[in-house]
């Protein structure tokens, strides 16, 4: 593997409690899944690299607590964030309402250059006999209106999880040649071990 320029990108995950924020990160970082993931208190911090053809993106991920009262801490996370993932649970319409709120708060408060992905998680649970589902078109419409990336995922099966981060990485502006990008030896994590075949990012 040749040495490529590496850029560090601060990413924040937002969304209602129990929509699967931590599970998405766990799948992305360790390719694991836990059926009953403990609620995150305050925040958890993780990093993972994403290899693009001509550069490496190192995501510095702040995984936040979902309960409403922790929202007062949120500005601390999204201050200076270059990327955000707003997550909802496709089987919980209320969580989609919350996702709308997060998107408008990010647009109002966060850096104007922030790249946002809207993610509908738990598609593996969506079925006719499982109650109301947030329609894919609904998520897509919100994403189109607000200029967001949009994907439906399952942290459980791994479907589309890598793609969220690849899409974000691709959309992040490439730094000017002489700017913040630093030369670094690429990490030793064998990212190709991820079984998620549809991933086009080398993550």
């Amino acid at each position: 593997m040749d040495a490529k320029p590496q850029t560090s990108v601060k990413l924040v995950l937002l969304g209602e409690a129990a929509v699967g924020k931590s599970s998405l990160v766990l799948r992305f970082v360790s390719n694991e899944f836990q059926e009953h993931k403990e609620p995150t208190i305050g925040a958890a911090f993780l990093t993972q690299k994403c290899q693009l053809p001509n550069r490496t993106i190192k995501f510095e991920i702040w995984d936040t607590a979902g309960q409403e009262r922790f929202a007062s801490l949120a500005p601390m996370y999204y201050r200076n964030a270059q990327a955000a993932v707003v997550v909802y649970d496709v089987t919980k319409p209320a969580s989609f309402v919350k996702a709308r709120h997060w998107v408008s708060e990010l647009h109002a408060q966060a850096s104007p250059d922030i790249v946002i992905a809207l993610v509908g998680n738990k598609v593996d649970l969506a079925s006719d006999d499982n109650g109301p589902r947030v329609a894919t078109a609904e998520g897509q419409a919100l994403a189109d209106d607000e200029g967001l990336l949009f994907l439906e995922t399952s942290a459980k099966t791994g479907s589309n999880v890598q793609e969220v981060f690849t899409a974000l990485a691709n959309k992040l502006p490439e730094p000017a040649a002489a700017s913040a990008a630093t030369q670094e030896t690429p990490d030793h994590i064998d990212l190709s071990a991820a079984p998620n075949k549809q991933a086009n990012c080398a993550c």
């Binding site: 403990e38 208190i41 305050g42 925040a43 911090f45 702040w62 801490l73 601390m76 996370y77």
Partner: peptide
Amino acid sequence: PPITLSTTSWFMSGFIG
């Protein structure tokens, strides 16, 4: 400071986790 994003949970959960 942002480090309190980590240390807040120490107190709230009494160091559990």
